[in-house]
Amino acid sequence: MPGANYRAGAGAGAGARRPRGARDREEDGGGLEPAAVARDLLRGTSNMSFEELLELQSQVGTKTYKQLVAGNSPKKQASRPPIQNACVADKHRPLEMSAKIRVPFLRQVVPISKKVARDPRFDDLSGEYNPEVFDKTYQFLNDIRAKEKELVKKQLKKHLSGEEHEKLQQLLQRMEQQEMAQQERKQQQELHLALKQERRAQAQQGHRPYFLKKSEQRQLALAEKFKELKRSKKLENFLSRKRRRNAGKDRRHLPLSKE
């Protein structure tokens, strides 16, 4: 086979030319340098069989082999180093930028400072939110609200019908609801504080603190609600309404009666 002869010849030649130390190193398992092999075998690739070509590929590496067979030289480095859009090494040096970027037709003559929106709820500048402190600080608003409520009631007496009456009615209702919500929040807070104090007292006695689950907290809140309803004698009313609502739900789930 001509390819085999060529390879044997090449090998012999290479061995004869190299100094003894180099041959020893090769026999130890180092092998020829890929570049050297590539140079030696460049001329004979056209005469080689596929088997030999595969062997050559494994010997010199895929990348070198591809370049060798295809005759492709490695890609030339770009002659120009890429210029960053704007880079300054030293603050006193002039700004260096690319000269190939087209400038927009309309330029910004006066630099516009971008307004940075701040949300006071999540801003450190606004300080920490402490509900107790907040309530104490803005306690005077409750008096103002009460006065406003009285004023709305007076207005309602004047306008007994019409659009104005409806508007005032809605406003009054809203005010009352807000007041109720605030009271509820206050009660919740008081309950929370009571639990905290209880826990602290237990800790002082040497007991391990016990934290209620959410479901337990809900049950406690419900019990408190019922107590409150009992106290205000609205419990019966509340329960009858609840029964009616549940009955309606049940009826909805029943199949339609055939007439």
Partner: peptide
């Protein structure tokens, strides 16, 4: 009116802004 003096480096395709 753009208020700058520029040095154009032809081979580097870049400019210095003063």
């Amino acid at each position: 009116r753009d208020g700058t003096v520029r040095v154009w480096k032809i081979p580097e395709e870049s400019q210095l802004v003063f």
